[in-house]
């Protein structure tokens, strides 16, 4: 079976700095794949490279076995692959209403019946009609992230790239968004590639995950390996320990 997304020996360079070096990842159709790793290790860059937003210097990216030409993406690609950005505060145009934000992709791809589609997309992410004509600054972080998800889903993609969809949200809203994402994935049989720095979130959402550090993939694991402590790389170990919480190393003085 051909993989939905196959990245082979990918390299990305910014002014001589290697943000990604020899990265290979393969995601099967319908799978949910996690990317965890150090800050600055190139997780967002990997997603952006797939989306055609980062300069690829080596390697190949294929969708459903079809190799993408470097730097070139056609409209069909953008119907197939969509992305939700890391920062819900920065990913919505400050002067466009939610309605505009959802209408734009429909208009670009020439969808019919836009009215119904927008209403349906908003309902799907749990935002009522009252939100349709608001501006982003009138929404909370969680609501904005819902809009961003609705915008990504409205063109009916089959692969969704999620860049830390919940890192800016509080625990209760995070649970709502994660449930929403899982439900839509089930309903629409989507393929997810999800970046997160929270091992618990990734192990909850994903079937497999890759651990990244300094532009490399250090380990690829099934999610169940985390619960069973079956991992090798030293960095994975460190991550796992760190996700237990803060541990004070030296007590210089007793708390007053």
């Amino acid at each position: 079976m051909t993989a939905a997304l196959e990245v082979r020996k990918l390299g990305v360079e910014f002014n001589g700095h290697k943000a990604l070096d020899d990265v290979s990842v393969s995601v099967a159709r319908g799978e949910s794949f996690g990317l965890v790793g150090e800050s600055g290790s190139g997780k967002s860059t990997l997603l952006r490279a797939v989306a055609g937003l980062a300069p690829v210097s080596a390697g190949t990216i294929s969708i459903d076995g079809r190799e993408l030409r470097r730097g070139k993406r056609n409209r069909a690609f953008y119907r197939e692959v969509q992305m939700v950005f890391q920062d819900p505060y920065g990913s919505l145009h400050p002067r466009q209403t939610i309605d505009r934000a959802l209408l734009e992709p429909l208009a670009i791809h020439g969808f019919d019946n836009t009215e119904n589609r927008i209403v349906r997309a908003l309902e799907e992410v749990g935002l009522g009609k009252g939100f349709r004509f608001r501006y982003p600054h009138q929404l909370s972080g969680g609501q904005r992230q819902r809009v961003a998800i609705a915008r990504a889903l409205v063109v009916e993609p089959s692969i969704v790239l999620l860049d830390e969809p919940t890192s800016a949200l509080d625990a209760s809203v995070q649970a709502e968004i994660l449930n929403l994402l899982e439900q839509t994935r089930k309903d629409r049989k989507l393929t997810f590639v999800m970046v997160s720095h929270d091992l618990a979130v990734v192990s909850h959402m994903c079937e497999r995950l890759a651990i990244m550090q300094g532009g490399h993939v250090v380990e690829t694991l099934p999610a169940s390996a985390l619960a069973d402590h079956k991992f090798e790389a030293a960095y994975t170990k460190k991550l796992f320990e760190a996700s237990e919480g803060f541990q004070r190393k030296v007590h210089t003085e007793a708390p007053a």
Partner: peptide, 16 residues
């Protein structure tokens, strides 16, 4: 900004 990247991701042409 990400919101411009988001429009690029919709497949919008540079002129648009």
């Amino acid at each position: 900004a990400d919101y411009i990247a988001a429009v690029q991701l919709m497949g919008a042409s540079p002129m648009r």
